[in-house]
């Protein structure tokens, strides 16, 4: 089985035409046929083993919440700011604020995201690794606690008991969630799994943590570019004086210069910044420069 777009070729969200009513109808029929056949297959016989499918999916959703909570709690414990939590994907069902953090609840809770920012650069690498490890860690701890409570030999043996099957389903969902997240992978979207995050943390350049630290300030200045490019430029220059290595600030400066009609200067400054980037960040920086160069060379629509 493959996830959609495992090949990283798909156009980004929003670049496709929205589905028509006919498309939505077709999709509904398609989902009802496949999902209906799955359901009939599961309920062909009502046994604890077959119902484990339902328990497994229910626990997987709940564990996604626990997983992201693990990241957020670990971040708070080491003094980092949690700016945003996203639970699931698909249509947004609600945006509550929990403990001062904006939480976005989506329809399908099988993936999640926690946005954090360090309070200071000191110790950022190991703290980052710890935050990455906390998500799968909390799932593994829960699985171990359930297995200990039920008994390790019981949890690993076939059973007709509903209670044992429920416990086994929980452990399976926790092991699968933690196991997949601990595989060191970079996804086609550019995001990394927790395993890759843990491995990369000790080698992450300081500038990356600086960028995370001042992320909200950069975001505000970026939003200002269109309305007040001169003010945004001044904001970026002030940030640059404090954090000269952060590439996003250089991009902001370039965008502000471009908005002021100083296109050549924008390209030159960004090019210089890319050349001075840490070698580990160079490919990403080069890609950023190329994207910027292409965006400024396009005629306005």
């Amino acid at each position: 089985m493959q996830p959609v777009d495992p090949f990283g070729l798909d156009p980004p969200e929003g670049s496709r035409p929205p589905p028509s009513r006919g498309d939505k109808g077709f999709l509904l029929v398609f989902v009802l046929i496949v999902g209906g056949l799955f359901a009939v297959e599961i309920f062909r016989e009502v046994t604890p083993a077959r119902m484990a499918v339902l328990f497994f999916f229910a626990f997987y959703g709940l564990l996604t919440v626990l997983h992201e909570a693990g990241h957020a709690l670990a971040a708070a414990a080491v003094g980092w700011r949690v700016s945003r939590v996203q639970l699931g994907f698909g249509p947004t069902l609600g945006r509550p604020t929990i403990g001062g953090v904006d939480v976005e609840i989506r329809a399908f809770p099988i993936v999640g995201l926690v946005q954090v920012a360090p309070d200071r650069i000191e110790g950022a690498r190991w703290k980052n690794a710890l935050i990455y490890a906390a998500g799968p860690g909390i799932e593994l701890l829960l699985a171990a606690a359930v297995a200990t409570a039920v008994g390790w030999s019981t949890i690993t043996s076939p059973s007709e008991s509903w209670a044992v099957v429920v416990a086994q389903s929980l452990c399976l969902a926790a092991l699968l969630g933690a196991g997949f997240n601990l595989l060191p992978l970079t996804l086609p979207s550019g995001q990394v799994t927790d395993g890759m995050g843990i491995l990369r943390s000790p080698f992450t350049p300081r500038a990356v943590f600086e960028a995370m630290m001042i992320g909200p300030e950069i975001e505000v200045a970026m939003k200002d570019i269109e309305a007040d490019p001169r003010g945004a430029l001044a904001g970026f220059e002030a940030l640059h004086a404090r954090h000269p290595q952060v590439l996003l600030i250089h991009l902001g400066i370039a965008r502000a210069l471009e908005a002021l009609g100083r296109r050549e200067e924008a390209l030159l400054r960004l090019r210089q910044a890319v050349q001075e980037t840490d070698p580990d960040e160079r490919p990403e920086a080069e890609a950023l420069y190329i994207a910027f160069r292409e965006s400024v060379s396009k005629p306005a629509r």
């Binding site: 297959e41 599961i42 484990a52 499918v53 497994f56 999916f57 997987y60 099957v165 086994q168 399976l172």
Partner: peptide, 9 residues
């Protein structure tokens, strides 16, 4: 998920 659970259970 269905394939996994069917094998494990």
């Amino acid at each position: 998920g269905l394939i996994l659970v069917s094998i494990v259970f």
